[in-house]
Write a protein that binds this DNA or RNA. Structure first.
Lengths: 338, 338
DNA sequence: TTTTTTTAATTAATCGTTTAACCTGTTTAC
DNA sequence: GTAAACAGGTTAAACGATTAATTAAAAAAA
């Protein structure tokens, strides 16, 4: 890597000081600081040498890196992938770089990432927090580092967050199954401590209770680390109850796709034998010869709000914290291909 | 954001110079530079204050940012998503941060990204180049910025690259269709100028020629920007030839998934009516009640090689450029669920 | 006792930018 | 004719970390 072109390179070639060059290149020569001719010369020379400022130096000097950190729980999940893409686009629009990190749902990884990003002088963070990460968030709060939680939150903490209306949409989605005539509706959810997942469960259960269909025996829990096996077990368990169930609500993306796989594997006709309701859309759903109803999260809007909120915090030093709730959408027929 | 803890903060609290603190914290107090007691005091204080070095300052001073840029063509594509994930993991293992950017297959975006990453002092780049980006690569080469192309390349350029054996695996995959009894094998590929895609086409066509089955009339081209419509047209065209085709080779991920969708939509039985061969795996394939044979690219290995190669270039200043070819894998039955 | 070596630190320059403060002519005002 | 205003710059310190060069005192060697 040969020596880069710096302000000084340009300054030397034109025999002016680097301050002058800086002034011109940053458009800060307002009230007749630098003459028109010199300005033009500098601009031309910069273009000629293809000058690109060193943002490390600039960041160091002005104390702003114009960088934000994005901490994602599982980048191999399409939902988070899309979220990351949009966050990056919106942030870039506003002049910020995004550094993405992946925790794999591991608390230790999340801590490492925070330190790592802190070292790189990020001005703020957008985080999908892992379980039990409250302590880490409190530390951020204490260090006055702006951050926004997205997709997930801890309701007991005074944080900024962007979430969907998990309870409400799950309630509505379950009602939809009822409307379709399901009488024995089961649920498959994660055995964990995430507020957003539990809200989905609560929404489903409340809908069942209010319609007199609630049965605790067909609410199944699966573990993240043993997803495939647990789903297999859960579906088997659900399908072998005395009175066969006729509806299932899946609370997440990964549970939905694996649940559908398992149903198909067991030759259960998702149209006739059972009605299902999935969380998040999936390419696979579009390929099946029948409609798979699902809950669509407005990912782009979530990304937009998260970026806006974070940048507000960074730039205005807005002390108030906001909890933004975005309405998800029930998609019932859009993926019908026939 | 409150004032961060710097070397000077620690130095002042212990009434030593910041040089001493730096020496200790970097483990450079080899030959009796700093006393054991002072070292321990500094270490303790650093831990107490939760000191995290400012990598902007460090990068500026030592002229190394320990950052690499990753330029991806389309992050919403699962293949690239997985590639990005693994590249990030391997790079992190070696102590490098990755800044990811997305070009959306746009040359202009690629140029912007290169400048952007250059400004952030990346030490090297891993790139899936867009079409016609040779000029940009030449500029990188001229500026002696280490970079590695992955997935795609320009054979006429003396660059480092990590690719799969596109020609060979496509040849073999086509032969597989022949072995399964297909007599009229069509192809759907992109109408473009990417070497790797054209190699896939050439591999398929050569296999057909060598088995006497080549027919230029059933080689279909689709446009990236009008993928869905063009696929619809291509499949229609293929299926309405006088003698119906009985095999299709899809040259990419996105073509495969859309092609399969379209076949299903037209009620064509992928088992009985037609045999297909896809590029890259997809969740959707696992959900179908029959096997979809596909070509699996060893993404993790590609990521590993790309990172290793780039870091060699960065650290050893290896002048020689290498073209690494990794063997892809034909997956014929793994996704059978029944 | 004087010289050399060792130990344990400090100094100061540097990376590339930014920016407040300063300088030096020339014009304008009174 | 002197002061004030302005035009068109330059200087120098600073951001935080690194590191070669230096210093000062103590210990060891001569």
């Amino acid at each position: 890597m040969q020596k880069r072109v710096s302000l000084k390179t340009i300054a030397d070639e034109l025999s002016v000081s680097s301050a002058t060059v800086s002034l011109v290149l940053n458009g800060k020569n307002q009230n007749g600081r630098v003459s028109k001719e010199m300005s033009q010369k500098i601009l031309d020379k910069a273009a000629e040498l293809n000058y690109i400022p060193n943002s490390l130096a600039k960041g160091l000097k002005v104390g702003k890196s114009r960088t934000i950190g994005l901490i994602i729980a599982d980048i191999s999940n399409l939902f988070f992938g899309a979220l990351a893409l949009h966050i990056q686009n919106f942030a870039e629009e506003k002049g910020y770089t995004v550094i993405i990190g992946n925790t794999n749902e591991q608390l230790g990884e999340m801590e490492k990432l925070i330190n790592f990003l802190y070292a790189r002088q990020v001005e703020g963070l957008i985080i999908t927090p892992t379980e039990k990460s409250q302590i880490l968030l409190k530390k951020l709060f204490h260090n006055k580092i702006p951050f926004v939680l997205v997709d997930r939150t801890f309701p007991e903490l005074p944080v900024n967050s962007v979430l969907i209306d998990n309870y409400e949409i799950s309630y509505q989605a379950t009602l939809q199954l009822v409307k379709r005539g399901c009488k024995r509706i089961g649920l498959v959810t994660y055995k964990q401590d995430h507020y957003h997942i539990n809200e989905r469960r609560r929404g489903c259960e409340d809908a069942l209770k209010h319609t007199g269909l609630y049965n605790p025996d067909i609410m199944e829990e699966v573990r993240y680390d043993f997803l495939k096996n647990d789903i297999k077990r859960a579906i088997f368990s659900l399908m072998s109850t005395k009175e066969r169930i006729d509806g299932i609500f899946f609370t997440t993306n990964s549970i939905s796709i694996n649940g559908v796989k398992e149903l198909i594997k067991n030759n259960i006709n998702i149209q006739k034998d059972i009605q299902i309701m999935c969380f998040d859309e999936n390419d696979a759903f579009y390929i099946l010869p029948y409609t798979v109803p699902f809950i669509r999260q407005p990912i782009k809007e979530m990304a937009q709000k998260a970026v806006d909120l974070l940048i507000d915090q960074i730039e205005m030093k807005d002390e108030e914290n906001q909890k933004i709730v975005i309405c998800a959408e029930l998609v019932l027929s859009e993926n019908r291909m026939f």
